[in-house]
Amino acid sequence: MLLEVKDLKVSYGKIEAIKGISLNVNKGEIVTLVGANGAGKTTLLKTISGILKPSAGVINFEGKDIQSIAPHNRVLEGVCQAPEGRGIFPGMTVLENLEMGKYARPNWKNELAEDLDRIYILFPRLKERQSQFGGTLSGGEQQMLSIGRALMSRPRLLLLDEPSMGLAPMFIQQIFSIIREIQTQGVSILLVEQNAAQALSCANRAYILETGNIVKEGAGKDLLNDDAIKKAYLGTGA
């Protein structure tokens, strides 16, 4: 098991946003966590990355408890995140943003050219925009940059927080096909989404999160055909 989250609870002051959830990601999988706005998706990813501290529970990565590892050191453990809202550094160029994904890696200079090639094959658009400031990219391009930057850190687990948010349908298609492409390159993915239709059809396994609790789990395809889920998340209830 690559990532194992057990009985995790996370609070903002007195408000408990994650109320004791367990989930896991196996090597090579795309796992999605689907939930409405405010369900606690971003809170979970921030906790895995160490930006928030849980009040209870365990987070194991590759069999090792990572909670004692400082947030900025977790990327070296092999976990990197493309955060909600993309987190592009607006005053850095596309290339500089990508290089930031290498910040933690001691041997980054030797890896740079090879990884840039790999990412420019995945996102040819970024190569064209190399020297443009991150803040001047369109939403879809920023999302590509955010994912590309996370990949620069050579993660074994990629955390994606609503990559489809605010994108035109054409871009959404493209982003999800790239996510599958990344999976074939051997990176496991935990994908958090409101866009249930796309996320469930892309994922191997899925969890449904409602106000801090996991209410259902199963194979992506099965949940796609689940009546309750169709009704609540896909707007095509029977």
Binding site: I51, P71, V75, L76, P83, G101, Y103, R105, S153
Partner: peptide, 8 residues
Amino acid sequence: KTAVLMGV
């Protein structure tokens, strides 16, 4: 926040 995610 993103800087931390990148290992800063």
